[in-house]
Design a protein around this nucleic acid. Sequence first.
DNA 1: ATAGGTTTTGTCAAGCTTTTGTACAT
DNA 2: ATGTACAAAAGCTTGACAAAACCTAT
Lengths: 310, 310, 310
Amino acid sequence: MTEPTVSPPITLSIAAVERDTGLSKDTLRVWERRYGFPAPERDALGERAYPFRQVEKLRIVRRLLDAGHRPGRIVPLALESLRELAEQTVDQPPRAPAAVADDGAIGALLQLIRAHDVVGLRAALQRLLADAGLSRFAADVVSPLASAVGDAWMRGQMEVFEEHLFTEVAQNVLRHALVMLPPLAQGRPRVLLSTLPGEQHQLGLLMAEIVLALEGCHCVSLGAQTPPWDLVQAAVAVDADIVALSFTGAMGPNPIHDGLAELRAKLPPRVGLWAGGTVPVLQRRPIAGVEVFHGVEQVPAALRRWRGQV
Amino acid sequence: MTEPTVSPPITLSIAAVERDTGLSKDTLRVWERRYGFPAPERDALGERAYPFRQVEKLRIVRRLLDAGHRPGRIVPLALESLRELAEQTVDQPPRAPAAVADDGAIGALLQLIRAHDVVGLRAALQRLLADAGLSRFAADVVSPLASAVGDAWMRGQMEVFEEHLFTEVAQNVLRHALVMLPPLAQGRPRVLLSTLPGEQHQLGLLMAEIVLALEGCHCVSLGAQTPPWDLVQAAVAVDADIVALSFTGAMGPNPIHDGLAELRAKLPPRVGLWAGGTVPVLQRRPIAGVEVFHGVEQVPAALRRWRGQV
Amino acid sequence: MTEPTVSPPITLSIAAVERDTGLSKDTLRVWERRYGFPAPERDALGERAYPFRQVEKLRIVRRLLDAGHRPGRIVPLALESLRELAEQTVDQPPRAPAAVADDGAIGALLQLIRAHDVVGLRAALQRLLADAGLSRFAADVVSPLASAVGDAWMRGQMEVFEEHLFTEVAQNVLRHALVMLPPLAQGRPRVLLSTLPGEQHQLGLLMAEIVLALEGCHCVSLGAQTPPWDLVQAAVAVDADIVALSFTGAMGPNPIHDGLAELRAKLPPRVGLWAGGTVPVLQRRPIAGVEVFHGVEQVPAALRRWRGQV
DNA sequence: ATAGGTTTTGTCAAGCTTTTGTACAT
DNA sequence: ATGTACAAAAGCTTGACAAAACCTAT
């Protein structure tokens, strides 16, 4: 471990605050000039370092902004006034042996997507699922199919809406399967699943959830785009042993790396942090205390390791 | 820190009041001129600042308006008179079918969310679904629950991650039900469903899809955040008769209005455009060629109309 | 503040009364001229202002109208007379609670059976189930359909194997739904379900099991044709509070009567004995200690009674 | 039920100022 | 990182208007 033994006073970088609050860096700087808030300290390098309390206030400001308030009117208010205001404001109506699906099968599925045959696609997926079972279905069908769709889109051979269509049908089938799974006695580890802001894709998450549930874990999924600070709160609230995140490359290397590092720093040390997805940066720049997965098939082994340690 | 030590008395901006009460800014201003109420104070910049008590009264007025009263008769009344009036007035249309889930049931579900009991929440939802049937489940359980969660979040009584958690579980249950629905012979109309970029929430979409499917439509959902141009492409590709979009207010009035207008202009005229969601702008600024829905329960009637026309 | 300090007496505008009572504005005005009631006051602007007590009376009048009375005969009556009348009048089924399956739907299902279209029949049933929910599905679809099939068979319009085909498909759909129902924490009462030897039909049993499970009972079903003595043994073994039996008339009056009497004698007194089915003998010759049901819709009320007693 | 007259009421427009996020240049 | 410039968005006011609601009488 390379972590320092003494913790510096807790402050966030401007990028971290952007992720946390959804306020752009530009906005943060311009508010500082115009309203005198936030008033970040400066670190050794002269970069903005936002104390935690200010970030807290920024989060509330953000919520009130969404409710129709304007920055100039609320940014100068004291934290308590904001809390009170928030309470009074009501929102109106926010890879396995004997691959089940060889390239031919994937090709056939791609054809169905290109033909926009929703019914046929769903039927084909359900059929493969029933035949192969959940874990192999996730690993041998959905995973490669998602990659194939992504590739095709990159090459301009597939429209945006066709990718959406595929994602939607696949989600339906996977979530259906998830609900069909009989709930297991509340097992360990307890895993919290989500993606970071900026990462929309939930498919990887769903597959991970399925594999974990099959292995007897207690899963709590928060869907896509949960801000880091909320993840930390949630991890504590549901007593999670592991926080699992999924990435697809939609986020860019730096945000991924920084986001993970930030989250690792904020999470209690006893909570594991797992990151999955076929993104180069995950492999190239390992982060201390973050376990990286390149595919769902690695999950069972990691679980065995976890259970052995505890 | 430049924060003031004393908090000014708490007031809401006109935009905040609009979101809170559903009364348009224009209406608020014109009432002020005509009836002398509301009588907002002015802040240092001369902008209207509505004291909380007046907003409270406005909320009641709004309810009475829906019950058939007219502004001129009730706006000048004192708050107490309005309260009395509200109690005596039956605000539901003559005979509402016995709601499946009363406030108690919704409260119980909220408790499960706050307790982060994923398993219990799912079980409760499934049980209600099985008992009530899909359409009533969507209208009487999921819809009000989603509103309640939104409210609680606004008031700061619910964390972001708890909202995520609820959304995730509800999606699982709804998608599961959707898959269980046996596919009908390819019916008309063919409906393409999505949300515009900026609108993340899919729950409304899912409920719409379910109701439509029950009514015998052929549904193709693209999930959330499909850019307008891709929607047009998709509509042509899947030979859609109707494009249906869902909104929650996360987008802001103007983007919604402009997005709809743009889409309407680009779509072939023979393709209908339906927009649903509890957003003031949808009610206030009708767009030629866009049909607006305030709840899933309006869908069957609209479908009958469509089928009658064609 | 411009609010008046004294509240005027509370009255409703004509539109409010329309929404409240469901009587059209025109109707209200015409009654006023013809019968001298209602007799609204006038406000400063000459608009009708209905005192609350008159609205109260109008609500009752409306109810009586629905029950078949005619305006000219009841509008002139005093409020007390109306109250009396309302109590005497049997509450007409106000609005058939949206019968899910009307005769037409049942007819369509019969057609599918006659066409031996197993797939279509199952799809149709599942669709109705999803739409209506379990309890209404059992009461409004399966029950009448089973009767219709029985009738058709009696009249020689349906073959034996067609009846079997129907039974099989319906059982599959119901059993599936039962499995999907998330199990509740082991509730009371504990109910043991079966039929007596000679009674093969399980459909009624299944429907009863579903309704009971929905109401939170713990159900143990033994399938068809369990001999009385084994039933007694089973009741003790599973600690049952109630033994529920289903009949269809395949057994003949005497065996039914004697079987029930024998069972009642052998069962511990604290165990309830419930018998359901559309068989004349159940109604004609009541047996001490045996509760008789003519349809699944009676079950919830009986359960409430049971829970009240214990 | 329909027709015709009056009042009520929400929305829109024009012309203006202030606020606010982003883009660009330093 | 900072500062400037700019366009979009949001506010405000006055005035006008058309749709909706209400009334009476036929």
